[in-house]
């Protein structure tokens, strides 16, 4: 096993293990901390794929910003005591069905990745570096990029409007 493969397996175990710990932790604060670990492990995978920009943006946006807000909310609501969840009989079934749907979508989305991976490798594998990413985003995909930024702007305006009402 080369060092890359070793790292890959380490990161994979870390990702899956910490993701499971997010679900199984009793204390919501621990769940959030495990989620941060998960994001870090996923960023490690991005770096292995030579997508450094994606890796660091994942850390800045998810681990750095969104998780801080999560932590804020949980700390302020003080969910320290284990709440007894309302258990209904249909809950497990709903969970199984929705989880199965997600699995189906994931399989459908990922079934062609082998072919795409070959294509990526053919392009010398540096598509994830920031220069190439910038070119692709601002030349090939300029319209979707701008539309999504307008979407974010409208979400921000909406948040301000909702906040102003009180």
């Amino acid at each position: 096993m080369g060092i890359t493969q070793l790292l890959f397996w380490f990161l994979t175990v870390l990702t899956l293990g910490s993701a499971l710990m997010v679900i199984f932790s009793k204390n919501p604060i621990y769940s959030i901390l495990w989620l941060i670990v998960t994001f870090f492990a996923i960023s490690g995978h991005y770096i292995l794929l030579n997508a450094q920009f994606l890796a660091i943006v994942n850390i800045i946006v998810y681990a750095g910003a969104i998780m801080v807000l999560f932590l804020f909310v949980v700390m302020l609501m003080n969910l320290n005591m284990p709440a007894s969840p309302v258990k209904k009989k249909w809950m497990p079934f709903a969970g199984i069905i929705s989880g199965g749907c997600l699995l189906l979508v994931l399989i459908a989305a990922l079934k062609d990745t082998e072919a795409m991976r070959r294509e990526l490798l053919m392009k010398s594998g540096d598509i994830g570096l920031i220069n190439n990413l910038g070119m692709v985003l601002f030349k090939d995909y300029i319209l979707p990029f701008e539309i999504s930024s307008v979407l974010f702007l409208s979400a921000m305006v909406g948040a301000v409007v909702i906040g102003k009402k009180n």
């Binding site: 920009f53 660091i56 850390i59 800045i60 681990a63 750095g64 801080v68 920031i130």
Partner: peptide
């Protein structure tokens, strides 16, 4: 090659210790 963004990432993690 993402030096400055790395600084950013670490700075954004800096609040966790305090929080």
């Amino acid at each position: 090659n993402i030096g400055i963004l790395y600084i950013f990432g670490v700075v954004s993690l800096g609040v966790y210790g305090m929080m």
